[in-house]
Design a protein around this nucleic acid. Structure first.
Lengths: 249, 249
DNA sequence: CGCAGTTTTGATTTCTGTCAACGTCTGTGG
DNA sequence: CCACAGACGTTGACAGAAATCAAAACTGCG
């Protein structure tokens, strides 16, 4: 809906729109970081239905919206979140640039979680059927897509283990380390500092805690010299100890 | 390894071996419940590598075992469980007859959880590559497999929401209702009573609680006339109220 | 400047875990 | 047939982690 021109300005984020056009970043078809043979990518034929740019804290879509279209993050951070009747919220995943929001609509499955922007977000809608057709047409793509699905399941399971069996400290440390890893995959992390646009209530919703308690744990992390947070960026000061906290107890 | 003859005896369980041979029950290729056109099933060509029968409480395989072979439950209940270094355990799913244990080896992904028998279990190993090849060869199968993968992810996410944001009562009630639903899909539930071979520590490991606390909650459920457990079977006495507890608060 | 959204703080409560003991049940083997 | 061991379930006293509540301080932004 927005003019494509609007999407052109890079806004100081690394690679954004290009990789999304090129089918799926997560499928690693287009190695978006290194812009090599970008134009051979089979996904390039796919045209998005529409393009949007929305400010932070806005909803990209709601639980039970449009079953057949697939939103795709071009730049910014978003979260896919489930909200219970009484307002309790659980964030199931943070969506980074290049992430497909949900695989469910691709196969006509309900999905049932909403997506909210954390920072300003650029995203595009694709038609599920077209995406699926593109996948099915190419067996290498398909292979990667399946692997991607399996990985998504594994990440969801890992989250379940964390929520079921780990302490607040462990959960928060693991969240941070997990984000760092994912950002590093995208070339968005320098050594031990990462962009960190999350509010404490995001951390709380992702770890199954309250923001009050998240605050206390983070303060304690800082007091112990483990991490440092300033100006929407986070650096891990004591990687060894932090890793230790994250893995066990 | 066991003689196939051993698998023949039905052991008073509904449909067991046949549906497993016939590729994947979960793929719904063979409507195993109603034995219609059983022999047209494209999976019938697949031969298992080996067949086993093991008693309750034994391990089917360990975290980090055989990456390329896929175990497949023919009869009995099993659980896929993650164990942390210090012994904390989280059950990620209960595996019912016809369940593929993990999709991960199908695509060469690690997987990283073990599988334990809850009741006596019959299972078969299949070669991951063959299964995958069979899937890829048939686009209808493939379609269903993908849908299955998506569903698995959704169930894992649902579990994460439960563990992150719901009380002990809710979690336990939801576990029971979830099992009833899955059993019903397989024709293994009459109205409101189901086979329930789980020990309280299984419930605990699946809900992220301790078995002591599970005991207390279950006692309370019984005291309130919500459920009744006897002789490895469970009946929901007050479905309406039980549902209410499970869904919200 | 003022306001809305955050973060921090401290007091208090609630839920769930921990520990330890005991009773039951089942299957096993003498 | 009995004794025994191991797994399981129940109980109660207590501890600890995290939630809840409420208020205050901070931040950024229009």
């Amino acid at each position: 809906m927005n003019a494509p021109a609007q999407l052109k300005e890079p806004k100081s984020r690394p690679f954004a729109s290009e990789c999304a056009v090129c089918l799926l970043f997560e499928l690693k078809i287009c190695p978006a970081v290194s812009d090599t043979n970008h134009h051979d990518c089979p996904g390039r034929r796919l045209q998005p239905i529409s393009e949007h740019r929305i400010p932070a804290r806005r909803m990209i879509y709601r639980q039970r919206d449009l079953p057949d279209e697939v939103p795709f993050i071009c730049s910014g951070w978003a979260a896919s979140v489930v909200t219970l009747l009484d307002g309790r919220r659980q964030i199931l995943a943070f969506l980074l640039p290049g992430d497909i929001v949900s695989a469910a609509p691709l196969f006509g499955v309900a999905g049932d979680c909403s997506v909210e922007a954390i920072t300003e977000v650029q995203y595009r809608w694709y038609r599920g059927i077209e995406l699926r057709a593109a996948l099915m047409s190419n067996s290498a793509l398909l292979e990667k897509a399946s692997r991607l699905l399996v990985h998504r399941e594994l990440r969801a399971r890992q989250l379940a283990v964390d929520l079921g069996r780990r302490s607040a400290e462990e959960r928060i440390a693991r969240l941070i380390l997990g984000l760092r890893e994912r950002l590093a995959e995208r070339g968005m992390a320098r050594d031990h500092t990462i962009e960190f646009p999350l509010r404490q209530h995001h951390v709380a919703d992702a770890t199954g805690l309250t923001s009050v308690h998240v605050s206390k744990v983070l303060i304690d992390f800082r007091r112990r010299g483990l991490i440092e947070v300033s100006d929407r960026s986070l650096t891990i000061l004591d990687p060894v100890e932090f890793q230790r906290i994250a893995n066990m107890r």
